[in-house]
Write a protein that binds this DNA or RNA. Structure first.
Lengths: 232, 232
DNA sequence: GTGCCAGAAATGGTCTGATGACTTACGCTT
DNA sequence: AAGCGTAAGTCATCAGACCATTTCTGGCAC
């Protein structure tokens, strides 16, 4: 087995066996090299691999630690790869978002939480009064994110967030011929979702969310040419 | 910005900008070091990071290439991190699987595909006649995997597969007091799913799949102590 | 005794150079 | 034209040195 793979397997085993739980500190690099039988370079490459996956994290001058191993945090790391997926693949991902988010929206509607509806309404008021593409994107994320959070499953929130972030790189809301029509349709969709939540109608909420995201899929399909994601 | 981060950003930018598409080959390491302004160690750590995420892959003696950037392949890389998530988190993930897989099962039922029903029936025949834990796990994966594939979204198939694989590390089907009852309930659940697919009833299929996976969640909750995932 | 500060120790981050291992391409032989 | 061996190209690994950051420790001032 290759050196880096050996180190990778060893590190994973230390976590999987329970020897090191969430937040635990690894031995210093020289000690790990000795224990795993690889050079420092190979060990460090293995550490980077697990770091990219959100499993461990190194702090300069302090040490290397097992992460919290929280599913939401780990899924968020996916954005590093998802942001590079071409449009073809993004459309498949949007189906995942549609299914998960309509589920979460129904769960949010089932909750007896007037404060949530009020907060969502405030977001929509701001969203409907702006035409700035960046602001639209942020408020849209805030709206859907708040609903998913109310849905109660942080993993779903993280996953839908990653996918939504990827879709956001395709600027639907650029000033153009169709801008007004698209914006009006989008605003209507958001209001339909909020109405269903306000009236505590989970089935209507699921339908509204599903339709809203399906509409986004249609817009993206029309945008095929020239995707230019911006990296942070 | 740190050297490795600089290299990471540079590599991602080369892909995101379209300079290098799926399958394209990167320049040799020394050239990349020069271009990105970092040492070879730092470059290699950045490459490993993106490799772990399934974005690029290095082939010894050949070169470093952009991966296919297929969403299903990228999601499959998640198993490296998901397999390390503690039981608490796995339960949240199972809700994701339940929602996605019941959707995919409904889609499979909507298809007019007698050959699928026949194939699934053959799997269940084998599954019902075995009591070996490993074989049960494999046949269960084959059954649900075939259904998800028929659902038509490879991203959903990959995601549910990763989560199912994680759950599989908790051995529900170990010989014990409840083995017979659990096995019988599980078999019944599978048959209910197949019946719904055979009769082309998407709603019933979604319900059956959802109930079946919810049952798994209950069994896992009862298994809290001593999870020992086996790494390959 | 408490709080602060400087220095020392511990630890990860980066760079350099050399060597090994594998793949690919080329040219030679048959 | 096919097969084969060699050479070039490329990634994999190791070793050692030095830098940057964090953390610990001891002593000093109050």
């Amino acid at each position: 087995m290759a050196a880096t793979d050996k180190a990778l397997a060893g590190l994973r085993q230390m976590i999987a066996s329970g020897e090191l739980g969430p937040g635990a500190k690894f031995p210093p690099e020289p000690e790990l090299c000795d224990h795993l039988g690889v050079s420092r370079s190979s060990l460090r490459e293995a550490v980077r691999s697990l770091g990219a996956l959100g499993v461990i994290e190194s702090r300069h001058g302090s040490g290397t630690y097992v992460s919290a191993l929280d599913p939401a945090a780990i899924i968020s790391r996916f954005s590093l790869s998802v942001e590079l997926i071409p449009l073809e693949g993004v459309l498949e991902l949007l189906e995942v978002r549609r299914v998960l988010e309509s589920h979460a929206t129904a769960a949010a509607a089932a909750r007896q939480d007037p404060e949530l509806a009020q907060r969502l309404g405030a977001i929509l008021d701001r969203l409907e009064s702006t035409t700035d593409a960046t602001e639209i994107q942020h408020l849209d994320a805030e709206f859907h994110g708040a609903i998913c959070t109310a849905g109660g499953n942080s993993t779903v929130t993280a996953l839908t967030g990653v996918i939504r972030g990827r879709g956001g790189h395709y600027r639907i809301f650029e000033p153009g011929a169709d801008f007004d029509a698209i914006k009006r349709t989008s605003d209507r969709g958001h209001r339909a979702i909020l109405d269903a939540i306000t009236t505590r109608d989970p089935a209507a909420a699921a339908t509204a969310a599903s339709a809203h995201i399906a509409q986004t899929e249609l817009w993206l399909r029309a945008l095929r040419p020239d995707p230019q994601p911006e990296l942070p």
